[in-house]
Design a protein around this nucleic acid. Structure first.
Length: 605
DNA sequence: GCGGATCAC
DNA sequence: TATGGTGATCCGC
């Protein structure tokens, strides 16, 4: 935690500097969804005061204050660097920037009609369908933190992402409803069925958002994009009783921005015309662009970039101040470029599976282990559902101060069982406890990365569905070259190997079905000796050296697995008990693609 | 490759 | 009294 020695005296901070940046902090506390719709008629000044007063002195508040101070320091560095750069000869940087802009311009594609469809206050709207009387009162969905609120609630300054007790301060009569995720999923499905008629390859960006390419539909039906979208929105409203808003543009980035223009129950089009697009972007606050959050907004603002049009005069500085990726992202913002390729989300390759849970502050080591046990089992279930194993395990903790730490361990073999997850995670946890005496947690999470698919290999190798299996299969086959095409022979070998692996896994799973996690819930474990830890599997004392220790645990795990597999192989029932569609967790799919500032997407045609 | 940070929803 | 869960990417080391 950076603690600047005393309040920062800055020559020209964001706006006005009062008592220790309370302005920027208050702005920070307003939350991330400030730029969303429905806030125009709200007295932000008053709202921020109320939030500030409600939060003051809490641990959350103190953490936000720390972050705010750190950002102020970082911005100071940026400003100093900028002043330094301006004394130099930047003609090289300027030329490079202009070359890149020219190169980007060549990729501009105005031939497609892309739309972004966004349900209006979706969760709240679905609840209002069941209970129409809620339409006339301010209402929000979510416990602890709000996920959505209706437009009446927004009039009070209530927003998604806000702590509910703060929302109650802003609007004491606010009705709070618990989430009904299954209900929202069902309604989302109805809406998607309609959207599929307009673009069968549409892309779900989240439960309540989608991108469609309606170019073909417009041509076939001899309709304007605007008429098409009117028709689709009317159809959705009529048959599902949910209103949606839409943006129409030449690419996904602008369509997304446009869908917020006439919310709720409206649509907005930016014509497929270069001049119109450039003009639209020129006055657009950078914060409206997907990928620019509160932090980047402040950083950009500090050097005088508030709208996308402001990017151009600063183009020579951007790479040095924010990095290559950020420059490329901003260049696309200035030009109004974005992807035109819309594809089903299933074609995306998943990169991680994780679970985390927040609880009341816990300092007791036994209780923390019980939480780890629970999270391990949750993750096992999620991995079974998604059909993955992981070769890297990431432990995440949030301290009682709201500070977040992660630790990861690479495992030589892919794991998915609660017992393995727990056993790999425990040493990481123990090490943290050693590093942070008296550690108190408010969150614990586990995530698997470096995924390996456990889907049956069979048809995927030869059938049309091969697209999904390819990248992972390549890894499974130990192919070194990423772009290596899989031959039928290799595929067969891979499939055969997979069969064996699956069998092993099944045996493993069966053998552990009755087994309780070893030492999983030992209530009070004495502190490990300062220089050594006990291996969670064999119990032998090991050194404190990370690598040696982890290697040993890994070794123990694989040995144990083999032993159990042999023991149990005499009695192998037919079927493995797979955790089939158990409780469904709100796994909002990753919203895809044009979301990251540092991610560049070029589209050649 | 690891850990911190940012971002979206 | 009290501030979420899932997934992704980028940066600096």
């Amino acid at each position: 935690m950076v603690s600047p020695s005393g309040p920062v005296k800055d020559t020209k901070p964001d706006s006005a500097q009062r008592d220790e940046n309370s302005d920027t902090l208050k702005y920070q506390l307003l939350g991330p969804s400030l730029t969303k719709a429905g806030q125009d008629a709200v007295d932000q000044q008053k709202v921020s005061e109320i939030i500030y007063e409600a939060s003051k002195g809490s641990k959350f508040f103190n953490h936000e204050q720390d972050r705010d101070r750190n950002l102020t320091v970082k911005i100071e560095r940026i400003l100093k660097e900028k002043a330094h750069l301006e004394k130099l000869d930047l003609s090289q940087d300027l030329r490079r920037a202009d070359e890149y802009l020219a190169e980007l311009e060549l990729t501009r594609d105005l031939s497609q009609y892309v739309i972004h469809v966004d349900c209006d206050a979706f969760f709240a709207a679905v609840e209002e369908l069941d209970r129409p009387e809620l339409k006339t009162v301010p209402m929000a969905v979510g416990k602890g933190v709000l996920t959505t609120c209706n437009y009446l609630a927004r009039k009070f300054g209530v927003r998604s992402g806000m702590a509910s007790f703060v929302a109650k301060k802003l609007c004491p009569q606010l009705i709070l409803l618990p989430m009904n995720y299954d209900k929202y999923t069902a309604k989302a499905k109805e809406i998607r069925e309609i959207m599929a008629q307009y673009d069968p390859l549409f892309e779900s960006a989240s439960i309540d958002e989608a991108y469609l390419n309606i170019t073909a539909y417009c041509a076939e039906n001899e309709l304007d994009p605007e008429e098409t979208v009117q028709r689709m929105r009317a159809e959705i409203l009529q048959t599902t009783k949910v209103s949606v808003s839409a943006g129409i543009a030449a690419n996904a980035k602008i369509a997304k921005i446009a869908s917020n223009k006439n919310k709720p129950n409206g649509q907005f089009r930016v014509p497929n015309d270069r001049a119109a697009i450039m003009e639209f972007m020129r006055e657009l606050p950078v914060r409206k662009v997907n990928g620019v959050g509160r932090v980047f907004e402040r950083e950009l603002g500090s050097i005088g970039i508030e709208t996308c049009g402001d990017i151009y005069p600063h183009r020579a500085l951007l790479t040095r101040l924010f990095g290559e990726k950020a420059f490329q992202f901003l260049a696309q913002c200035y030009l109004g470029l974005g992807r035109t390729k819309i594809e089903p989300v299933e074609t995306h390759e998943r990169k991680s599976v994780g679970t985390e849970t927040t609880f009341h502050e816990i300092g007791d080591r036994g209780e923390i282990r019980a939480k780890l046990d629970w999270v391990s089992r949750e993750l096992e279930g999620d991995l079974a559902r998604t059909q993955f194993k992981g070769r890297t395990l990431v432990l995440k903790v949030k301290l009682h101060t709201f500070e977040v730490l992660t630790r990861q361990t690479a495992v030589s073999r892919a794991i998915s069982q609660a017992k393995d997850l727990y056993n790999i995670a425990l040493p990481m946890l123990a090490k943290l406890e050693k590093e942070i005496p008296g550690m108190k947690l408010r969150l614990l999470g586990l995530r698997c990365t470096n995924l390996v698919s456990t889907k049956k290999a069979g048809i995927n190798f030869f059938g049309a569905a091969a697209v999904q299996a390819r990248p992972i299969s390549a890894e499974r086959l130990d192919l070194k070259a990423a772009d290596h095409e899989i031959t039928a022979e290799e595929a067969f070998e891979g499939a055969a190997r997979q069969e064996i692996q699956d069998e092993m896994n099944d045996l493993e799973q069966l053998s552990q079905e009755a087994a309780i996690l070893p030492d999983a819930t030992v209530p009070t474990e004495p502190d490990p000796p300062p220089a050594q830890w006990d291996c969670p599997i064999c119990g032998r004392a090991q050194t404190a050296d990370d690598r040696v220790f982890n290697d040993h645990v890994d070794f123990c795990l694989s040995r144990q697995t083999i032993r159990e597999a042999i023991q149990d192989s005499s009695e192998t029932p037919e079927e493995t008990t797979v955790h089939s569609n158990r409780k469904r967790k709100p796994t909002s799919q990753a919203s895809s693609s044009d979301a990251d500032p540092r991610q560049r997407r070029l589209f050649f045609h």
